[in-house]
C-alpha cells in the first residue's frame, strides 16, 4: 500500500480554457461580463433594455447559454445586437471551452462589451470560471431577500448585484422583500460589491447600472487593471 501526493485542481481543464479566454479578451481590450441568476430573474430583459438604451454609446454582443432553444438569442437579435446561442443539452452551467468557440463567432472587432448570459441557475455556474472580466449576479425581488445568505458563493464572487423587478415592490404586490437586508448580507460576503436596485420593465434605477458599464468599458479600453 502506498500513498502519492497529487495536489492538482480537479477543474484544471476548464481553468486552462478560462485563462486562455481571459488573456484573449484582455489583449483585445474587451469587457466581458458573465451574468448569473435563477431562471426568470430577468437577465434577457435587462440585456435587451441595456443594449437599446446604450445604442450609439457602446456596442454590445451577447453569448446566450440555455439548456434548450434559441429564444433568448432571438430576443437579443431583435434589438439589432449580435448574439450566439449555446445549448448545453442538459448541463447546468456554461464551460470555458464553449465560450472560446462562441467568441470566434461574434464580430469582436465591432464590439466594446460582451455579455455572457449563463444558464438560469444560482449555484452551478459560480463554480466554472469562463475567463470573464467579472461576474454580475441578478436577484429579482420575487425570489426573496434571504438568497445571499442561502446561496453565498455567487454573491461572494460577483462584482455587481442587480436587484431586479423593484417595480413589484412599488406596486405593493410584494412587501416582504427588504432591499436593505439584501445589501447588508451581500456586503458581508463581499465588501466591494456594487449593488443597483433596478426595474428592467420601468427602467427605474437603470442609469446607475449604465454609468457603471460605461465607466468599466472605458477602463478596459485603456487597459487599466479591472478591480474585481
Amino acid at each position: 500500500m502506498q500513498k502519492k501526493k497529487i495536489g492538482k485542481k480537479i477543474l484544471s481543464a476548464n481553468e486552462e480554457y478560462a485563462l486562455k479566454n481571459s488573456r484573449f479578451l484582455a489583449r483585445q481590450k474587451k469587457l466581458c461580463l458573465n451574468m448569473i441568476s435563477s431562471p426568470g430573474s430577468g437577465k434577457t430583459t435587462i440585456l435587451a433594455r441595456t443594449i437599446s438604451e446604450l445604442k450609439g454609446k457602446i456596442k454590445i454582443g451577447v453569448i446566450e447559454g440555455d439548456i434548450q432553444t434559441d429564444f433568448d438569442a432571438q430576443k437579443i437579435r431583435a434589438t439589432g445586437a449580435p448574439a450566439v446561442q449555446i445549448n448545453t443539452g442538459g448541463a447546468c452551467h456554461l464551460s470555458a471551452a464553449q465560450i472560446s468557440d462562441a467568441l470566434q463567432n461574434l464580430p469582436l472587432a465591432d464590439l466594446d462589451l460582451i455579455f455572457i448570459e449563463n444558464v438560469g441557475n444560482l449555484v452551478c455556474p459560480s463554480a466554472f470560471e469562463l475567463g470573464e472580466t467579472a461576474k454580475v449576479v441578478v436577484l429579482s425581488v420575487a425570489e426573496g431577500d434571504d438568497k445571499p445568505a442561502k446561496y453565498p458563493a455567487i454573491f461572494a464572487k460577483s462584482k455587481v448585484l442587480l436587484v431586479n423587478k423593484i417595480d413589484l415592490l412599488r406596486a405593493g404586490d410584494l412587501v416582504d422583500f427588504d432591499v436593505e437586508r439584501v445589501k447588508a448580507d451581500a456586503r458581508k460576503l463581499n465588501k466591494g460589491i456594487e449593488i443597483f436596485p433596478i426595474s428592467a420593465k420601468t427602467c427605474e434605477g437603470m442609469t446607475y447600472w449604465y454609468d457603471w458599464l460605461l465607466k468599466s468599458v472605458r477602463a478596459q479600453h485603456q487597459g487599466l487593471a479591472f478591480d474585481r
Binding site: K3, K4, G7, K9, I10, L11, A156, N190
Partner: peptide, 17 residues
C-alpha cells in the same frame, strides 16, 4: 471582517494497492 480567497477543488492524494 474581509473574506479571504476560498479553497479550490483539489485532488490531494491517491492511495494505491
Amino acid at each position: 471582517f474581509q473574506l479571504l480567497p476560498d479553497a479550490p477543488l483539489v485532488l490531494e492524494e491517491i492511495e494505491f494497492e
